[in-house]
């Protein structure tokens, strides 16, 4: 399970962080913290869908569900990924 969290965190750092020195952990607020905006959240959704071969309905791809790596893990549990 921790492997998945790290994979997602690494993707987020690579895809979204402008400042490589910025610290980010599993509970860091992504949407409310201004790291990922709702416009660019689509790449994260597509990454999860491609990586874990799932389809996340738009109704479940909410800012709250994507607001931290921990929240994303809760979402992925619904798809039996973790």
């Amino acid at each position: 399970m921790s492997g998945i969290k790290e994979v997602i965190l690494d993707y987020i750092k690579e895809e979204y962080l402008e400042d490589e020195d910025m610290e980010l952990d599993f509970s860091s607020p992504l949407i409310t913290g201004g790291i990922v905006d709702s416009f660019s959240m689509v790449s994260l959704k597509r990454f999860l869908e491609t990586k874990y071969k799932i389809q996340i309905p738009d109704a479940k791809a909410t800012p709250d569900a994507f607001d931290s790596v921990d929240n994303i893990l809760v979402l992925l549990k619904e798809f039996n990924v973790v």
Partner: peptide, 16 residues
């Protein structure tokens, strides 16, 4: 952003 959301094409973004 709004215009892209109205289109059926896939959306992606790059860092500023």
């Amino acid at each position: 952003v709004d215009g892209m959301r109205l289109a059926k094409a896939m959306t992606d973004t790059y860092k500023h």
